[in-house]
Computed example of a mutant assay.
Amino acid sequence: MELTVQNASQVVEHFAAHVVGLPSNDLFRCEPDVVKLRPKEVGTLRMQISVPERGGMIAGPYILGLVVKSPYSQEVSRCEELPLDVRPAPALTMNVQPEVANGGKIGNYVINLANEGNMPMAVTLSGTDPENRVGFKFAPRELRLEPGMVAGSQVTVNSDQPLTGSEKHRSATLRAHAGETVVEKPVSFVQRPKIRGGWMKFGALAAGLAVCWVVRPSVARFCCVTSKPTTPRQRRHRSSRRRSNKSRNLRSSRTHRHRLSRPRRRTRAQPLPSRHHLSLPPRLRLSQVRHRPCP
């Protein structure tokens, strides 16, 4: 815009213009900075006001003041009103962390919203998925953001967890509505199964060993693997078992040797014949004669 300035004094004056009511002096520019006028002379100043959409003035009507004065004489000045209407410029940004959530039945996200426009915004959060099998819970669901304000919300998604098999990848979209302004962010939800493939293999192996134990005990005993003791309690138990087995074997061996060393049961001997029927050496005593058992 252009300002027309006239020197109504009787001397030569210098005049400069500036704007009152803006949050910063960087928002206006005047060319030239100072104009020199003789008495009754008229000059022109070009004024430019620029209000940024983000980080500037809030949308709405304003009354500014245009002040023209002499930099050398404070008594020489003039002020005029300038109406200004700042149009609304909504700007909403949304950030989601993490973009990929891992879990079983539920997953968690954090939404960060920032109002980078020049007007207050009432934001409502929602979520959708293509399969319509994911539920969404927001805390809070509705937020009011002033210009330059940042706020967050906790999001919990839930879906039926697969029983077995591989991981289930589900895609979803989180939305923030603020009037005609809509911001979307795609996210992913990776669900692990309740029973993984490794547990299924272990169950099949255990079932096979159980069948072998019932059908062929010898094969099952051959397939069994004994693990070494790892804890002190297991080592003490194993050493006590060894001592008990050793003492049992020692008792059995002693019993066997005692049976072998014990003399045989003697049977009653036959009466010896009379002396005149038996010819014995003169020095042989009867106690040295060994009786044989009767047949």
Rank of each mutant, 00 (worst) to 15 (best):
G203V: 05
L143K: 04
A17P: 11
T44K: 12
V182F: 08
N112S: 06
P88F: 08
A8H: 04
A16I: 00
T124C: 01
P271T: 08
T4C: 09
K137Y: 02
E180N: 12
P186H: 06
N25Q: 00
Q154W: 00
G60N: 05
V11G: 01
R242Y: 15
V68M: 10
M121D: 03
R192L: 04
L250R: 12
S227T: 14
G165A: 08
H277A: 11
S171D: 14
D85I: 04
L280A: 00
E75Q: 04
V12Y: 07
G165T: 09
D85W: 02
S240D: 14
M121L: 15
I63K: 13
S70D: 02
Q288Y: 01
N158H: 05
V68Y: 10
H18P: 03
A178L: 11
G198N: 08
P193S: 08
V155T: 05
H237I: 13
R285V: 04
G55L: 07
V76R: 09
E53Q: 12
T181Y: 08
K185D: 07
A59W: 09
A59C: 09
S77Y: 14
L82T: 12
V35S: 10
V214F: 11
H18E: 10
R238V: 15
G152M: 03
P140Q: 00
V123R: 02
G165Y: 03
K228Y: 12
S24K: 06
V150D: 06
S77T: 08
N95T: 14
A91L: 13
P23W: 08
S77C: 05
F189S: 03
K40G: 06
R268G: 06
R254T: 07
V211Q: 01
C223H: 00
T4S: 14
T255R: 14
F138V: 01
K185I: 04
P193W: 03
C224D: 10
C79I: 14
N95S: 13
R243K: 13
T124W: 00
C30M: 11
Q234G: 15
S73C: 00
R268D: 03
A151D: 00
Q6H: 08
Q270K: 10
G107Y: 06
Y62P: 15
R144K: 07
R251N: 13
L27D: 03
